[in-house]
């Protein structure tokens, strides 16, 4: 693999309002320093893509943003969300996760009915009214472009759905919580092309209401759907800029090599 100077980076200042910012974020798995000094702002109501070679720390970085690395890794530094440092030990992590939802690489619906998958976590937040639950059920399934396919089978097991449908159910389950930010970790990597394009369309619609951060190893996908792109290499954010710039006018040699396929 080519050697790059990892002390140099290009991190843009975004003009948009910020959904999340990280300040001097470091992540350690025991002695393994996995993320070095990440400083970047994620814009509101835009899609930000995290790209980079496998093992560079994309998932690690993403999972910090809603405290999913608690008990897995040590995370130092600040994550600012609405002027609060959500990386502080005093923060109620359960509440953080209700504001910042996450969809994983492999679909992980609960072994319950489609309806229960969405309603059960909502009830847990204290919503009791059946009308409201049913309304959120339909609204979130519509939001995830799944309603038409499942509206007659809401009591059927979520496990009976196809992989693509399950993943859209997981997206629906997340957005039913009305989060601010949606984190997605390679949500389409286990899916066929048709399901993938359905999910991409869904994200385009969702970004009107949500700030979306998506990890992808698929460069075409990043350039197709995202507004901003951050390129990670060996735990460093090497370049962060508008997607158009990252793909057509990269500032760093490593980024240039990666997006043009000359990497490694």
């Amino acid at each position: 693999m080519k050697e790059y100077n990892l002390n140099e980076s290009y991190i843009t200042d975004i003009p948009e309002k910020k959904a999340l910012s990280t300040k001097n974020l470091q992540v350690y798995y025991g002695d393994n320093h996995a993320i070095f000094d990440a400083n970047m702002d994620f814009p509101r109501y835009k899609i930000t893509a995290l790209i980079g070679a496998s093992g560079c720390g994309k998932s690690t970085f993403l999972r910090c943003l809603n405290r999913m690395n608690d008990k897995v890794a040590r995370v130092d530094g600040n994550i600012m969300y609405r002027n609060v440092d959500i990386n502080s030990p005093k923060i109620n992590v359960y509440e953080v996760r209700q504001h910042i939802g996450m969809v994983f690489q492999r679909p992980n619906p609960f072994a319950k009915s489609i309806r229960e998958n969405i309603i059960f976590p909502l009830r847990n937040t204290g919503i009791k009214s059946n009308d409201e639950l049913e309304e959120r059920l339909e609204q979130s399934l519509r939001g995830a472009a799944l309603w038409d396919e499942v509206k007659d089978d809401l009591n059927k097991s979520a496990l009976a759905l196809s992989g693509g449908q399950q993943q859209r159910l997981c997206i629906a389950r997340s957005i039913a919580m009305h989060p601010d930010v949606l984190l997605l970790d390679e949500p389409a990597s286990a899916l066929d092309p048709i399901s993938t394009s359905k999910i991409e369309e869904t994200l385009q619609i969702l970004k009107k209401d949500y700030s979306i951060i998506i990890v992808t190893h698929n460069l075409q996908q990043a350039s197709r759907i995202s507004d901003y792109t951050a390129f990670l290499h060996l735990g460093h954010i090497v370049e962060y800029n508008s997607t158009a710039n990252v793909f057509t006018k990269p500032k760093m040699q490593a980024t240039d090599d990666y997006v043009s396929g000359n990497f490694g």
Binding site: N66, M68, Y94, E95, V96, R97, Q98, G101, M102, F104, N108, P109, F110, P121, N124, T125, C170, R173, S174, M177
Partner: peptide, 9 residues
Amino acid sequence: EAGMSLGLS
């Protein structure tokens, strides 16, 4: 992870 990410204890 699904449960955690939805804010369940």
